[in-house]
Design a protein around this nucleic acid. Sequence first.
DNA 1: GATGCTATTGAGTGTGCGACCAATAAGCAA
DNA 2: TTGCTTATTGGTCGCACACTCAATAGCATC
Lengths: 216, 216
Amino acid sequence: MSSSVQRKRVRKTPEARRAEIVETAARVALTEGLECVTLRRIAEELAVRPGLISHYFPSAEDLVGEAFSVAATGELDALLPADRPHGTPTQWLARYFALSAGEAYDDISRLWINARHLSRYRPVLRDRVTEQELASDDRLEQVIREGVARGEFRTDDPRATAIQILVVLDGLGAHANSDRTDRPEAVTRMALTTAERELGLPHGALTDVPAPPEPA
Amino acid sequence: MSSSVQRKRVRKTPEARRAEIVETAARVALTEGLECVTLRRIAEELAVRPGLISHYFPSAEDLVGEAFSVAATGELDALLPADRPHGTPTQWLARYFALSAGEAYDDISRLWINARHLSRYRPVLRDRVTEQELASDDRLEQVIREGVARGEFRTDDPRATAIQILVVLDGLGAHANSDRTDRPEAVTRMALTTAERELGLPHGALTDVPAPPEPA
DNA sequence: GATGCTATTGAGTGTGCGACCAATAAGCAA
DNA sequence: TTGCTTATTGGTCGCACACTCAATAGCATC
């Protein structure tokens, strides 16, 4: 009879409930920011009471950390999957940079800025950030190693090269919340330029390349 | 007789009061973060009532924006003064990178991360961030132009070069809240390497240089 | 259909925030 | 000294937050 208030309670298994809480928190973190991952906000999304979120995450800080990890892992997998049964390192790297230049990458940049800032105050989140940074380094390093092994790339220190590329991407992403329309070509191409230089590739080697088979 | 409560009220000129509010807010912003710039916090620092801060800044958001601007301007002037009566562009640039590698630079990096993130939600702050970014670009571009004019540097596009250097510095500074002890040499030197490359300088040209006369 | 476990609710605590406003007193000018 | 302007106070309101806990009800089991 009354308005839209939901009175019926739905009882789920702890695993299922926890999973949907984390999933929702990750989505909110990515789209609206980590400070929007609050007990009330997530509870409202799931049409449950805030106390329930507390039940699964006695400390809200843990939920925020988990939300970031899940979101960051998902985005990393989308940018550069760990499983690359087909396609060459050059193709995957080219795809990575193409995605990094797109609009969708702004959400990821924002998430990272968000997490890196918030980790100033929240130790739990700081650990997660460090963890995810290592994961990104590892992933990119691995692709570079494969490329070196195949003779596609040339570098003495694959890890240092990976980190350098990521530093440039971080630098470019730092402005995800401001206007960047009038950025010089040399700047927008910085990540590509860095990769080409550090990997001993000719100009255009990472742009004039067919896309690898899309992951399932 | 009682404890430390201060009952005597001190009346200052609006200009003086406003100045000390802004100064305090800038200090808090730099050392503890922009979210600590609250009416209550600044009032406590100055031993006045929160209402007084509201009196000078009817919208708290304006105070935060002002705090950031003042802090960022101060730090920019410390890193690379606008007035450089003595010393060469090479010397000033070398000094700039030396300071950028020091501990004290972490506070600045943190402030920028902080502001760039918060500007996602606060339009007032976003404008200030854009403003300060332009100021940094301009300052660095100017030094580069002087160096080009003197024949010390060589670049086709001083502004693009300036922005590229700043992108690298932003990328390196992004990790100001995490541990960066085991960073490869090639990474820690990235800003220098970028500058040397883009300015047509030999390796070491920006490190093996006497310091310019310190500004007053 | 009754029972027990526990996922979920409802209600409440305490904190910190910005914003608002009438009352007060500091210090200048008459 | 008196009076006036206004910088400053003190108190209040509403909101959002995390956290706690006894009471409730969904659901599997018997």
